[in-house]
Amino acid sequence: MLKWKRVVNLNPGERLAENLKIGNLELKEGTKLDRDMILKLRNSEIEWVCVYSVELDVYEIDLEPLLPHDFLDEMKESIDAIVNQVNTTGRFDPDFVREMSRRFVETVLEQYEKDVFMNLVKMRNFDEYTFAHHINVATISLIISKELGLNEIKIEKVAISALIHDIGKLDVPPYILFARRKLTDEEFEVMKKHPINGEKICRKSGLKDEEIISGVLQHHEKLDGSGYPYSLRDGEITYVGRIVGVADVYDALTTERPYKKPWTPYKALSHIIRSTKAFDTKVVNALIRAFGIYPAGTKITLSNGKKAIVVGSRKGMVYLPIVSFIDDDGRKITVDLSESKKIKILKVGW
């Protein structure tokens, strides 16, 4: 992005967007300014210069994913296979899903025990939405379950349910499912039937565990009765439905779609925290413990005046994330605020 700046406000690391000459010194477009160059500019008669602004962007920083790339490729093949099974026969192989879930739980928890939680899966294009959403919702659900202290059997049930929670969307007409716009009221009513479609597919596939099925059927229900498809309330919603529901909302809000921009992770988390009547408080608190108040991707301003982006958080450090910013010499610096006494978070946003 081009920006006109007063010479007195230039920072090291910014690049010129024009050719300049200061005495015998020629500075060409694209030149990365250092302290000496800026000093010479300040001592010249030049008052304004055009530069390419140095700003971090959430999509330009390489946020390290929680899951290894080769494992994600393996999971994509497995999910594609399930989708193909349902599209062809109207059912999936429960044993195949259980084995996929077992590998998923093992890998996610192994990575999560490494102490630092980083980023979720980001789509390379809109066609990957289904895959990325299922993996993200399952990852979030699994970590929430771990933070809640659920036993291995319940954790596995949550994982299976989350991995297939949107399987019912395969019965939604493509023109609605892949609409690159906001749905009409009539189309949304059709979309709202996907949890019921999913339950039917699960039962047709021979899946008999009611708790697993409940996550597929209830992940859009809300404790205050404002959800769908049955407007269930509080005690009528299982622990699986509550966990998968929170994970689903968080990922949906932070994901870009053809018809909407993504919310920042901080904004999405803040929305969920404020929705006390809709979501289970214990589940929300577990989400906060896992992601921190400032999830990866959150833009913040630091006490040193730098614009930074959260790139991760150390478990237990809810208020002190790991951040990256550009220093005065144009270098990308990563700082763990839980280990820094000098740098604090001044505010959210730039």
Rank of each mutant, 00 (worst) to 15 (best):
R98Y: 13
R98K: 13
E99G: 04
E99T: 11
M100A: 06
S101G: 03
R102T: 10
R102C: 07
F104V: 02
F104C: 04
V105L: 07
V108Q: 02
L109F: 13
E110T: 15
Y112P: 06
Y112Q: 01
V116N: 05
V116L: 09
M118V: 08
L120S: 02
V121W: 04
K122Q: 03
N125Y: 07
N125G: 06
D127L: 10
E128Y: 08
T130G: 10
T130D: 08
A132K: 04
H134C: 08
I135H: 01
N136W: 01
V137W: 05
V137D: 01
V137T: 12
T139L: 05
I140N: 03
S141E: 00
S141C: 03
L142A: 00
L142R: 00
I143S: 03
S145W: 01
E147Y: 14
G149Y: 14
G149I: 12
L150W: 15
N151K: 09
I153V: 15
I153P: 09
I155G: 00
E156G: 08
S161E: 00
S161C: 04
H165Y: 09
G168P: 14
K169Y: 10
P173F: 06
L177K: 15
R180H: 06
R180L: 02
L183G: 07
L183A: 04
T184S: 08
E186N: 06
E186Y: 11
E187H: 09
E187I: 10
E189T: 13
K193P: 08
H194Y: 12
P195N: 00
N197V: 13
N197D: 06
G198V: 09
G198W: 10
G198P: 13
G198H: 09
G198I: 11
E199H: 12
R203E: 11
R203S: 11
S205D: 11
S205R: 14
G206D: 09
K208Q: 12
E210T: 14
E211M: 15
E211H: 14
I212P: 13
I212R: 08
S214H: 04
G215P: 12
G215D: 03
H220I: 05
E221A: 05
L223N: 08
L223F: 13
D224K: 11
D224N: 14
D224S: 09
S226E: 07
S226N: 10
G227I: 14
G227C: 11
Y228D: 02
Y228T: 10
S231M: 11
S231Q: 11
L232Q: 06
I237E: 02
Y239C: 03
